[in-house]
Design a protein around this nucleic acid. Structure first.
Lengths: 333, 333
DNA sequence: GTGAAAGCGCTAACAC
DNA sequence: GTGTTAGCGCTTTCAC
């Protein structure tokens, strides 16, 4: 293994000089810098991460804690993971990914062992028992998602209520007079996550403000059959009045499209549809769907930004940053 | 920060004794062990990862390198990532996740800085330029996926050819006399990944062996429209003969189902369909689809197993482990 | 502008 | 069965 000592010997300088050349923490004469950099290149020197962490109390690693319990919703996490890891690279950091269904064991491990400089905790729910411990860790923690009580931790979240409003208003603007929000089957614990309720509330209130008819549909069970039973009735109504659907998940969007195809109704003409899904999802449906994007990239960047502000000495103040939704009109409205 | 020195002082033993209690690398009298463990608990001692790595040349971290270029196929990676991270936890290791479109920069960083003990490289393609460098790293590397030349690296892959055979034989066994494999639009670089060709070859040869009619359909472009144009013609034929479809991706499965619904054909009765997708995917389609699972968990475990064999001193011998497919008959055959 | 040297917290010889 | 001690490779004072 090539060490900074080897580099120093090769360049004819002290070990500390090598260190200072790399960190830029003191001024170096052009000649010395050149010699050191040449030696680094010739020996293909890489600083040892463990030694650096030990000496500097900085690991250049961020912990990303996600709870991968529900396989279905899991797919939605990938854009976040992707955005966070690539942003970390840009900032010259690495990501340790931990998947934990519940509990704070990994939080305490990551922090206690000084494996990471900071932690991003995803999938926070309303009464998240992890937050109390998270707030006491030695490293800064940033949440993605909101709890009823964030315990003073900084959080970033997508503005689901605004998303609901935006989806509803798009439908109303496009002349649909009746709005149907596809809700969750009872299996999904709506109470656990505030954002589902927030989204529905936004949509309903927007309709209410504009005196439009609105309704949340709740299939009796998960799966296509219950969905079919609940929603196809609504499709019937769409033949006589201008109905617009709001679907909160890619799966639901796909199913609504499927139902319309079966009923020989053309989305965007006979029926309106706004989906909450990424732009990539929107474009891979059989019809490009007007969508409100949950903006995983923006949410992730905001969380990372806050992480680095905290690492730079900012005080955690329980601040909440909401990322506004963005609607892209495609073929279904 | 609580250090092993603090624990030693508290327990009235030497620092090294604390170390040996934790590692079990030498025998400790019950009394000392009890004292040390009590001190550890009282002080909530966590060993410092950097110091441990520095002293032991072991980080207890595995690097997972995935290339997240194509957003579409990306979703399929999640089950692998999930399986690998949770298996790592069981083995008391952590995962640093790196996403890199191409190039070996992160491989060299992870290894050069001694950030990781080993690397799992996913998404290997036929002429993967990374492998040559990967084979020269100081840490063991295990591939998920196969290249034409693995450069002596160990690899694990799903047996795509066997999957193709299995899918075709299921259809033939169930009385479908004509097999249609939905291929890739030209956009997908079939040449880059051997597994797509392997899958199709398996399906075609199985049909050929049993003298059944078989065909690979290649939509002229990506997206629903080209798919519709290409496949709906085949749906027509299904009204007069027993046609079975093989769809290689969840997206394609969904589209075939959609097409059948539009044409008022019932999958499993009028038309056969076997999808290559996870069991979870299968169950969330509108009809539970008979599927050949790519077995992400098994592939991941096999890769991790090999990693730990190598860490335990096994010699890398360019060995290739193929995970056999498994078919689950559901409602579409 | 540069060097020498003292740790960071752990592991693993080497003693006894 | 346990204590003593020499590093691991870096950062960062302190000294010049």
């Amino acid at each position: 293994m090539v060490t900074s000592k080897d580099v120093a010997a090769r360049a004819g300088v002290a070990q500390s000089t090598v260190s200072y050349v790399m960190s830029g923490k003191r001024s170096i004469s052009p000649e010395t810098r050149a010699k050191v950099e040449a030696a680094i290149a010739e020996l293909t020197y890489h600083p040892n991460a463990g030694a650096r962490a030990l000496a500097s109390n900085r690991t250049s690693v961020i912990g990303l804690v996600v709870s991968m319990s529900r396989t279905t919703e899991m797919a939605g996490l990938l854009p976040f993971i992707e955005a966070i890891t690539s942003d970390a690279r840009v900032r010259d950091h690495d990501i340790v990914l931990v998947t934990e269904e519940a509990g704070t064991a990994s939080l305490e491990r990551l922090s206690g062992r000084s494996l990471v400089d900071a932690i991003i905790l995803m999938d926070v729910h309303l009464h998240d028992a992890r937050l109390e411990r998270a707030a006491q860790l030695a490293v800064p923690v940033v949440l993605i998602g909101l709890a009823e009580d964030n315990h003073g931790l900084d959080a970033v979240d997508f503005d689901f209520e605004a998303a609901g409003i935006m989806a509803a208003e798009e439908l109303l603007d496009r002349g649909y007079t009746r709005v149907v929000v596809i809700g969750e089957p009872p299996e999904v614990n709506v109470r656990a996550y505030g954002f589902i309720a927030g989204f529905e509330r936004g949509a309903l209130e927007a309709c209410h403000r504009r005196a439009a008819e609105a309704e949340v549909l709740r299939p009796a069970a998960p799966g296509w059959n219950a969905f079919l039973a609940e929603v196809s009735e609504q499709i019937g109504k769409a033949r006589t009045s201008r109905v617009g659907f709001i679907a909160r998940t890619p799966q639901t969007v796909a199913w609504v499209l499927q139902l319309l195809l079966i009923g020989h109704l053309e989305p965007g003409r006979d029926v309106g549809l706004v989906g909450m899904c990424t732009d990539e999802d929107s474009e891979t449906f059989s019809t490009p769907v007007t969508n409100v994007s949950p903006r995983p990239r923006e949410v992730s960047y905001a969380a990372m930004n806050r992480v680095f502000e905290l690492l730079d000495g900012a005080e955690p103040g329980g601040q909440i940053q909401l990322i506004p939704p963005r609607l892209t009109r495609r073929c279904t409205t």
